[in-house]
Design a protein around this nucleic acid. Structure first.
Lengths: 348, 348
DNA sequence: TGTTGTGGGGAAATCGTTATCCGACGTTCC
DNA sequence: GGAACGTCGGATAACGATTTCCCCACAACA
C-alpha cells in the first residue's frame, strides 16, 4: 500500500500534455511574462490546479541562476541576542520572497569558513554574516565576497570590501557610562569579552577611552559573552581588596550582566545600592532579572531590515560601492542602576 | 574595475577541458563512485584545485533528486525554547551533511501552510515541524507528509501519518505536582496556554487530571506562552479573595513562570515562602530569575538528535511504518519552590 | 496585391550535474 | 587462438524549468 509519496509531483510537461500545448506556453502563463490567449491561459491555470502543480524551484534556480535563498551565518545561536536578530532577518527576507539557510559557526573561524563555503556551493544569492573574529574571519569573508554578495551584520571586519550594518557600540557604551557618572559612580570594573569580534573590541575600547578620562578607578576583566563569566567575576569584584573594589560593574553584554546580578544577590550585595550593574543588547532576559538590567538597546529589527535591504540592493546591482550603515542604540534604564518605583510602590 | 564576482565559478566542463578528458571522468574522480586511472585522477584533482572548482549543488540536486536540505518549521522563534532546540537540530543535521532551511510560522496555521508549501517547492529532502495547532495544522501536515518525509518535533498532531518525537508532558507535569505536594502545597492556580498545540493541551490535561484527585483547591487560567501573561495573572492571584488564593502557581512554561515570579517580587510576595511557582522547559532563563525556577527539563539535545535520526531513516526508507518516540523529562528544583542554600550561606 | 508588423504559439537550447550505455583494451581461462 | 570478462574512458541522455529563436496567421498599410 503506497502512501503516494513516490508519485512524483506534476511537472510542467505533464501540465502541457494535459492541456495539449507546449511547455513553453505553460511556463509563460504561470510566469505571466508574455501574453497568452485568454482561453488557453484559462485552461492552463485549470490544469495546473487540477494536477496540483508546484514549480520545482531547483530546476528554476539552475536555469535562471538564482535560488532566491540567502545564507545567514551566526557566531553563537546560544546567545539570545542572535535568535531575535535571526527572527527579524527571516521576516525581512520572507517579505522579499527569499528563504533562509541557517548556519551556526559556533564561534570558530574554521567552522565559519566551512559553512560559508557550503552555502556558496548551494548557490545562495547572498550571505548575511555576523563574523566570528575581526582578524581570523577576514580571509573567509574576502573570498566569499568575491563570489557572492555579502552583508556583514552586527559585527564588521575592516578591509573586507562588503556592505555592513552595525550598531554604534562606542556611543552605546558612552551612554551607559555617562548614566553611571550622573548617578555618582566613579569606580568601574569592566567585564568584557576577549577575542577580536568587532562588537567586543569596540565596547572594550570605548570603555577604556572614557574611563581613562573620567573614572576615579577602573579595571578590565576579560572572559567571554557568558552568564558564567559574569557570575564568577562579580564574585571576585566583591571580595577584592577595598582599594580595588568597584561601585559599578559594566558588562559587555546582558548575559554577563545577568550572571553578575544573580551572583551579587546570592552574596547579599544590594544592587544598585552597593553596586550598580549594566549590560548591553537589551535581550528579553534583561527585563526579567531582578533587579532589571540597565542596558543599551540594539535596534534589532532595523538592523535586520537594513541588512536585508542592503543585500537585495547589492544582488540587484553587484558592482555598486560598498556601504556601511551604523545605527544608534538607546539607553534603557532599569533597576540595576536606578531604584525604580514599582507599580504598587514597593521598592526593592 | 570588476571585483571578479561576475567571473562565474568553474564548471565540471571547464575542468574537463583543462585536463583534456570528458566531464564524466571528472565527475567520477570527484565523486569517487567508480575507479579511474591513478594518473588521470591526479591530473583531475589538480585541475579542479587550480580552477577553484566547487560543485554546483543546485545542478547536482536537480539530477540526483536530493538537495541534502531539510526544512525546519517553528511556531515561534521568540520563545527561547525553540532557538535552543533549533541549535541542536542544526548541529545534528550538519553531521549528516544536510543544510537547514528555516521558517517561522509565527503561531499562525495559515502562515505555517504557506511556509511548508514553499519548502516543499524548494525540494527539501524532508521537513521537521513543530506544529502550531493540533487541529488546524492537520491538513497542512497530512498533505506535506504525502509528498515528503515529515517528522513532528516537540508537538504532535494525531491522525497525521508521520514520525514524531515528543516529550512526555503529562509525566513532567506530574513530577512538578508531586514535588509541590511533598512540600505541603495544596491550593493551585494553573497558568496555561490556550489553543490546541499538543504541548499546551497535554500539560493542561495532566494538571487537571492530577488536581481533581489531589488538590485542595485549583483553578485554571488560560492565556499564551508569554511573560506578560504570567505577570498579569500572578497579580490577579495575589489580589483574589482569600478563598480562591493559591499557595502555588503552576505555569505551562518558563516564560509564564518568569513573569509570575517577577511580578510577585514587585508586589512584595515572598517566593516560595508565601507562594511557590513552577515552570516548564528549563530554558536558560530559568536559572537566572531570582529565585531560580523550579521546572522540568526537556531533553533538548536528545529531542533534536532523535528527530534528525528519524528523518534520515525515513528518507532512506520512505515506506516504513511511522514511529512515535516520547522522551522523559526530569525535574529541576530551584528556589521558586525550595529555599536553597546559596554557596555563601545567605539564603533567598 | 505585396509588404510589414504583431500577437500567439512551438521547438529546442541551456543551466551543471549524474547516470546509463557502449566501445576499446588487456587479461585470463579454456 | 578465441570467448568471456573486468576495467577504464567517452558520448550522451536525462533532471525540470526558462529563454531564445523561429514560424505562422492575421491585420494594417502603401
Amino acid at each position: 500500500m503506497s502512501n503516494g509519496r513516490d508519485a512524483r509531483p506534476a511537472t510542467l510537461r505533464e501540465v502541457a500534455e494535459a492541456v495539449g500545448c507546449s511547455v513553453a506556453t505553460v511556463s509563460r502563463v504561470l510566469a505571466g511574462d508574455r501574453p497568452v490567449g485568454p482561453d488557453l491561459a484559462r485552461r492552463v491555470q485549470q490544469a495546473a490546479r487540477d494536477l496540483g502543480y508546484l514549480p520545482n524551484q531547483v530546476a528554476r534556480a539552475l536555469r535562471s541562476r538564482s535560488t532566491a535563498t540567502v545564507g545567514l551565518v551566526l557566531p553563537q545561536i546560544t546567545n539570545p541576542f542572535f535568535p531575535s536578530l535571526m527572527r527579524e532577518v527571516e521576516r525581512a527576507l520572507h517579505e522579499q520572497g527569499r528563504a533562509l539557510l541557517l548556519a551556526d559557526s559556533a564561534d570558530d573561524p574554521a567552522l565559519e569558513a566551512e559553512r560559508v563555503e557550503l552555502l556558496i556551493a548551494r548557490q545562495v544569492d547572498g550571505l548575511i554574516v555576523a563574523p566570528v573574529d575581526q582578524e581570523r574571519s577576514m580571509a573567509t569573508l574576502a573570498k566569499a565576497a568575491a563570489r557572492v554578495p555579502v552583508v556583514l551584520l552586527d559585527r564588521s571586519v575592516d578591509e573586507v570590501q562588503a556592505d555592513a550594518v552595525t550598531v554604534d557600540n562606542a556611543a552605546g557604551m558612552r551612554l551607559l557610562l555617562e548614566h553611571l557618572k550622573a548617578l555618582g559612580h566613579s569606580r568601574f570594573w569592566f567585564l568584557g569579552a576577549a577575542g577580536d569580534a568587532s562588537a567586543a573590541v569596540e565596547r572594550r575600547a570605548a570603555f577604556q577611552d572614557w574611563a581613562v578620562r573620567h573614572a576615579g578607578f577602573w579595571r578590565v576583566e576579560l572572559g567571554d559573552f557568558s552568564v558564567r563569566f559574569g557570575q564568577h567575576t562579580a564574585g571576585r569584584a566583591v571580595t577584592a581588596p577595598a582599594a580595588q573594589r568597584p561601585d559599578a560593574i559594566v558588562c559587555a553584554n546582558d548575559l554577563i550582566a545577568a550572571g553578575a546580578v544573580q551572583r551579587l544577590r546570592e552574596l547579599g550585595v544590594s544592587v544598585p545600592g552597593e553596586l550598580a550593574v549594566t549590560g548591553f543588547d537589551d535581550i528579553d532576559l534583561a527585563s526579567l532579572t531582578s533587579p532589571g538590567l540597565t542596558t543599551v538597546r540594539q535596534p534589532n529589527r532595523e538592523l535586520a531590515a537594513e541588512a536585508a535591504r542592503m543585500l537585495a540592493a547589492r544582488i540587484h546591482q553587484p558592482e555598486a560601492a560598498a556601504r556601511a550603515v551604523r545605527l544608534t542604540p538607546t539607553l534603557v534604564a532599569r533597576g540595576s542602576t536606578v531604584v525604580v518605583q514599582s507599580p504598587q510602590g514597593s521598592t526593592l
